[in-house]
Design a protein around this nucleic acid. Structure first.
Lengths: 122, 122
DNA sequence: TAATCTGTATTAATTGATTAATACAAGCAT
DNA sequence: ATGCTTGTATTAATCAATTAATACAGATTA
């Protein structure tokens, strides 16, 4: 499992976002077992308390289900997962466009730059 | 002057980024007068100390020049300004692509979504 | 000259996030 | 039944960012 944590930004937020992305992208199977708080915390090199809060947020989003003593599992509600995926993507797109516009990029310029970047990555 | 501050993220970083964008996009004329620390701080609703640090970062980036007692002015080095503009844009593009990939979006999907979003805004 | 503005520096207080160190109750497997 | 793991809760400590309240020196301006 891979973690990209920027020490300068709130950790809990990043944990939530990345775990949500892992679920949304199918890295965690819908309906499948979800790792324990302590396991995830150790893996991410983070305090269990912080991870616990991130998981609470994931549950609020409806992405995981908690069984008090038997651990957690990923929701099997594919519609919910897809909704979260779309919502997160929309959020990223909007934030990106806003920042590019602030830098003075026109719509056309943004399209050019992004298409160029996508090509380069191949 | 417009400020978009997310209380959950480090303020100084956001101030620096937004001011850099204002300069990069030409909202502040190259070579022109730059507002005082106190003025900017009051306008942004932020502590002068925090704004001061943001301005220090802007100076480190070479975007503004400080005249100890006569205030500051924007650099007239257009090349420097353009470099910063490109650098910031690249940073935004890369961060955006990474997050979209984490959500399980393919290159084609990303291209579709972004082009759609650009169209919609018109 | 006096008032005002500039950037800068300093120290303390405050606030929030994160860590740390536990503890507890419930389920599950041996 | 015993030991293990689970999620959860609690309290204190730590650390960094931000705010607050000043102060100072130099330049400008009226």
């Amino acid at each position: 499992m891979e973690w990209k944590i920027d020490e300068n930004l709130p950790i809990r937020t990043q944990l939530t976002e990345q775990l949500a992305a892992y679920i949304a992208s199918g890295c965690f199977k819908p309906g499948g077992r979800f790792p324990s708080v302590r396991e995830l915390a150790a893996d991410a090199g983070v305090n269990p308390n912080t991870m616990q809060r991130a998981l609470s947020e994931l549950e609020d989003m409806g992405l995981i289900i908690t069984n008090r003593t038997a651990g957690r599992c990923v929701t099997d509600d594919m519609e919910k997962i897809n909704n979260v995926r779309k919502k997160q993507a929309k959020k990223q797109v909007e934030a990106f466009l806003e920042k590019m516009k602030a830098l003075g990029f026109s719509r056309d310029e943004i399209a050019d730059v992004i298409n160029e970047a996508i090509k380069e990555g191949e």
